[in-house]
């Protein structure tokens, strides 16, 4: 049965979280069932208060074979991190 059901990716926002985070995937016949299955599978231990689902086929992913050209050029560009400033003491939570 589940062989025929499409795969969905599940995103959950925790009670204090600002963003939905990817928590896993599941099978469901449609979006309604996907939300309910996500509730039953991924929020059993109060993991969150909001769920997003999207059918996996709608996710466009970067090509794992292009990792070198995609991500490695950023490696030696440490000046892109804002770590060269002196922070005044008044600025907290940085």
């Amino acid at each position: 049965m589940s062989k025929d059901w499409p795969l969905y990716e599940v995103f959950i926002r925790t009670k204090n979280g600002l963003d939905h985070r990817h928590v896993g995937s599941l099978h469901a016949a449609d979006e309604t069932m996907a939300i309910e299955n996500a509730r039953d599978v991924y929020t059993r231990r109060m993991e969150g208060i909001s769920i997003w689902v999207v059918e996996s086929k709608y996710i466009t992913a970067s090509d794992p074979y292009s990792q070198d050209s995609f991500f490695n050029p950023a490696e030696d560009k440490i000046y892109r991190h804002p770590t060269f400033y002196e922070l005044p003491d008044e600025v907290k939570h940085m």
């Binding site: 049965m1 589940s2 059901w5 599941l26 099978h27 309910e36 299955n37 039953d40 599978v41 059993r44």
Partner: peptide, 12 residues
């Protein structure tokens, strides 16, 4: 359960 997701739903 008929599928894993419903198995968990039934157990819940």
């Amino acid at each position: 359960g008929p599928v894993l997701e419903q198995d968990i739903a039934l157990t819940n």
